[in-house]
């Protein structure tokens, strides 16, 4: 009887230990950030804790910063006798990442406008429909005009600013690698000559957890 009680006590201890192990297995200590992560304000040029191999804000900032500085130093812009008029043409996205293409040229334009201090003027071609509507209202006398509305005053462009995003992707069991080449050009609208061109390149690699492979 004593032996049996001793055995029972021994067995129960082990069972209790096993149960404790099971219970501890489901404690929330194994869950990362169980309460979530509060909104964290980050600079657009720093890599966040959410990252992929595609284009991200830090790439946009780095690329557009480089481009607007480079454009500003172009002799055709820096030494122009008359302020050049520039039109933005859509960026050609040849990568595997769908993007909002306008965002690149928008940022370059904004930076140039803010830093160039009148050395160039961008023409708002994407607003032509609204501008033509306004001109029509003036021509029909429905609204007042500060100048003769019948004169053609919409300006033609001296230069075209555009870009291309090209990509090269490799995916193997070792991971995914994405290389993106960002090229931007300033094209003379009269001669089609490329008066300025610059590029930036970014390569990223990543490997997902084995559970997804």
């Amino acid at each position: 009887m004593v032996i049996f009680m001793k055995q029972l006590k021994y067995s129960l201890s082990i069972v209790a230990l096993a149960a404790a192990g099971l219970i501890s297995g489901c404690a929330s200590s194994g869950v990362r950030n169980p309460s979530g992560v509060p909104v964290t304000e980050m600079r657009p040029d720093e890599q966040g804790f959410v990252a992929g191999t595609g284009m991200e804000s830090q790439d946009l900032v780095a690329v557009t910063d480089k481009m607007f500085r480079s454009v500003l130093a172009t002799p055709q812009i820096a030494n122009a006798q008359t302020v050049p008029r520039i039109v933005l043409a859509p960026v050609d996205n040849q990568t595997r990442f769908p993007i909002n293409k306008d965002i690149f040229l928008d940022r370059i334009r904004v930076e140039l406008n803010s830093k160039a201090k009148g050395k160039m003027i961008f023409l708002a071609r994407e607003r032509m429909a609204a501008l033509e509507g306004e001109r029509q209202l003036k021509r029909s006398g429905q609204v007042t005009a500060s100048a003769d509305p019948n004169r053609v005053e919409f300006e033609g462009a001296d230069f075209l600013l555009t870009g291309k995003l090209s990509g090269l992707t490799t995916r193997t069991s070792a991971g995914t690698s994405d290389y993106i080449l960002y090229t931007f050009q300033l094209v003379d609208a009269r001669t089609s000559g490329i008066v300025w061109e610059d590029s930036a390149e970014i390569k990223k690699q990543g490997l997902e957890d084995a559970a997804y492979r």
Partner: peptide, 27 residues
């Protein structure tokens, strides 16, 4: 889907002996 690179707690769990594969985030 484009941001699944690197450590993933759910995926790590799914690789463990005591969690089913279905416990990982479905992609």
């Amino acid at each position: 889907l484009q941001g699944i690179y690197g450590p993933d707690p759910q995926a790590r769990k799914a690789r463990g002996y005591f969690h089913a594969e279905a416990s990982k985030t479905f992609i």
